[in-house]
């Protein structure tokens, strides 16, 4: 099975799966931490409206995990506030 990186772990994914689905399948529920209260957030609307599932993708912040197709070239980090 193919993998992408989430922080220091390898996350397996099916072909055509979203990053969010692959993370949830692997039991990774905490996608990001909010700016003000540092609360954990995860997938919420699932279709790109709410921006709650944003992660850092190859260094770029604010990327919606629910819309992004999983790929081996992706190195993903939990987004901490705006970092």
């Amino acid at each position: 099975m193919k993998h992408f990186k989430f922080d220091d772990e390898n996350i397996p994914f099916h072909d055509g799966e979203s990053v969010a689905a692959a993370l949830l399948r692997a039991g990774k529920w905490r996608f990001r931490e909010t700016r003000k209260t540092k609360e954990d957030r995860s997938l919420f609307c699932g279709i790109g409206h709410c921006f709650d599932c944003i992660v850092v993708v190859n260094g770029e912040i604010n990327q919606r995990a629910c819309l992004l197709e999983a790929d081996e070239k992706l190195s993903i980090r939990k987004q901490l506030g705006v970092n």
């Binding site: 919420f44 609307c45 699932g46 629910c66």
Partner: peptide, 10 residues
């Protein structure tokens, strides 16, 4: 806002 709470659409 807890992880695991989502919209029915999600």
């Amino acid at each position: 806002t807890l992880p695991g709470v989502m919209t029915a659409g999600a």
